[in-house]
Nucleic acid binder design. Sequence first.
DNA 1: CTATTTAGTTATCAAATGATAATTAAGAGG
DNA 2: CCTCTTAATTATCATTTGATAACTAAATAG
Lengths: 142, 142
Amino acid sequence: MNKNTLFHKLVSFTTSVHRVTHELTKNAKSDLISQIQFNILEYIAVNQPVTPSEINDCQNMSMPNTSRELRKLSEKKLIEKINDSEDRRKQYIRLSNDGEAMMNEAFATIESRFIKRVQNASKEDLEDIERAIDILQTKLFN
Amino acid sequence: MNKNTLFHKLVSFTTSVHRVTHELTKNAKSDLISQIQFNILEYIAVNQPVTPSEINDCQNMSMPNTSRELRKLSEKKLIEKINDSEDRRKQYIRLSNDGEAMMNEAFATIESRFIKRVQNASKEDLEDIERAIDILQTKLFN
DNA sequence: CTATTTAGTTATCAAATGATAATTAAGAGG
DNA sequence: CCTCTTAATTATCATTTGATAACTAAATAG
């Protein structure tokens, strides 16, 4: 097993991950928001509170575009902006109640599809999957 | 370990996979093509020959948009269209020599970044990673 | 105090993407 | 032959996304 062979396995693997992720999340998002807006909300949901700068670093977008999308999300009442009391240039972004509700609904849809996907897996299979995820998470995707 | 906990691990894991994939592939593609065009070329490279219908199924795009992107790729001399001799409605798409060269270059860039990423991994680590990929590939992302 | 840097906004433009209707051509079933 | 279905194309339009310049306001360094 050399690194080149492993690389080919990885390519095939990441393709599968992307495909399955797409199947799980397909149409899970509300039609009120675009895909990028969903990605931003997902990032906020997991890491809140976050600053606009953190969002554009992680989502690889420019500040002007981040600012625009956050404005749209704010206009849709899905997020709230809170000013930093120490550094008044900074803001913190949180999901609003509506935003939390929307993301909870989306995650519930995705989770039920996931449950369906592993419904026939044995206890041992699930343990194998968990261990494998832990290994890759720490040794490759950290 | 219940399925709900496993689901949360999976969400975190897929996020990491997407982030690392993005880091590995960032700027690896030529500026002559768009991201979607790169995805299509990647799909063709791995599965060729493919039909336009297969592309729109796997890339989740509509036939008209697939057709448009394939026309652009064809105009850029990156792919070749071959008519099916039996069913004359069908086509088969292959990479041209230019297309192969472009994708080989991209894959080489991505692979060298991957090698760098695992340069400090021990033999045992690499074997663990390989086994973990195999497990997830067969038990979860199939 | 002044210059520079940092965080974020606004405006604007080009390009990419998504969606739909209408069309061509050919295979399949009766 | 006739109808229906399938594979793909063309044209068109709205929306999303990416990129850039110009700007405000606040912190920081000298």
